[in-house]
Nucleic acid binder design. Structure first.
Lengths: 195, 195
DNA sequence: TGACAAAGTCAACACAATGTTGATTAATGA
DNA sequence: TCATTAATCAACATTGTGTTGACTTTGTCA
């Protein structure tokens, strides 16, 4: 459990970084399933056996990368919770988008057609915990047993927003995106007349 | 291009149906990438060589299954367009949810953690065309260059709703879901006070 | 109904990626 | 500096792949 224990040997850091870079590149070109350990290590210019020192297979590697991302996200958002006393969603969204911007390369491939559904689901799960406190406290009794539906709509919608944003290369600032997301969540996307 | 040309030999239909059932089952248990042609055909109780008569590999098979789903969806929604003259989003949503209900097994696995990101993206693309006419004609000039963001939020949000629904086994009727979705799209998920 | 065409079976094949090994060399950090 | 640990390299059995040709079974349609 004790993550980032002390910090690894420089060679280990180097190796993992090279492998991650190679994987990110390959995932832009093809399905994860089509990526072999052989070509990954060839691209990273290292011995094939070295890969197995750290990962069981490609999927195990991707999962471990996601692990460390979620850990970082966890730290950031828990920190936020202490700072802000008010019940706004915006601060938490701002932190989220700042995090996405910093990890935009990996987020882009994970949300691309070659991406990983389980990443979406994990993001869904992690954010759900964070959001529950905000939502439940607010006057959200209106959705009773429908919370699941409401939450899934808003979370997946936000994921769609993130996807579009990273696909464009994050031209807007995290603050702008947090503002837009907050607006979408509160007032919906269609400002139509009531029919 | 000429799809469903005449209709295939009964043996071909049988084979493809058995393979599809086997794939659906296996995808509930494991990642697509971990599914081998060998075990798939063993489960379907047929010769391994038979698989290669129709599909290049597992991914090719999944893609072809998705193809036929999108074809069916296309027909349904194009039909709808002729029937309804008004500019409501609800009729199109109703047809969508009816379609999902009929294909709920496959939809459930495709949207599960073991699912297929490219399915989401294809759904995104197909529905985008359909929705453009409705949205553009409506008073939706408010979002100008931001259409992409709005659309992605609403489409992914709807996908999240679909996911939650099929995961529960579609207890609500398609009409109820269309109503809920319409509400989410128009008024957003949070009915909070304007802060 | 019966004949022909097409689908499915079976065994065999070369090929490629996997995951693991033991011995050796190189880099790190205290 | 030196003991420790990472990385390399070659080799290995194993497994899935994709394809072949000869065969048996099944469906279609005249």
């Amino acid at each position: 459990m004790a993550e980032t224990e002390k910090k690894e040997d420089r060679r280990v850091r180097r190796t993992k970084k090279l492998l991650t870079a190679a994987l990110t590149q390959l995932m832009q070109e093809k399905q994860i399933s089509e990526i072999t350990v052989r070509e990954l290590t060839e691209l990273a210019d290292m011995n094939r056996g070295t890969f197995y020192l750290y990962y069981k297979d490609i999927y195990d590697m991707l999962e471990k990368i996601e692990d460390s991302m979620f850990e970082a996200l966890d730290r950031i958002i828990d920190l936020e919770e202490n700072e802000s006393v008010d019940r706004q969603t915006k601060p938490i969204l701002l932190k989220l988008f700042q995090f996405i911007e910093e990890n935009q390369e990996m987020c882009r491939v994970l949300l691309s057609p070659n991406g990983d559904m389980s990443f979406l689901h994990r993001l869904n799960g992690v954010m759900r915990e964070k959001c529950l406190r905000f939502f439940r406290a607010a006057e959200a009794e209106s959705w009773d047993g429908d919370f699941d539906y409401h939450y899934n709509f808003l979370m997946f919608g936000t994921a769609g927003l993130i996807r579009a944003w990273v696909n464009r290369g994050c031209p807007e600032s995290p603050a702008q995106m947090a503002e837009l997301t907050d607006h979408m969540i509160r007032r919906g996307g269609l400002d139509l007349q009531n029919n």
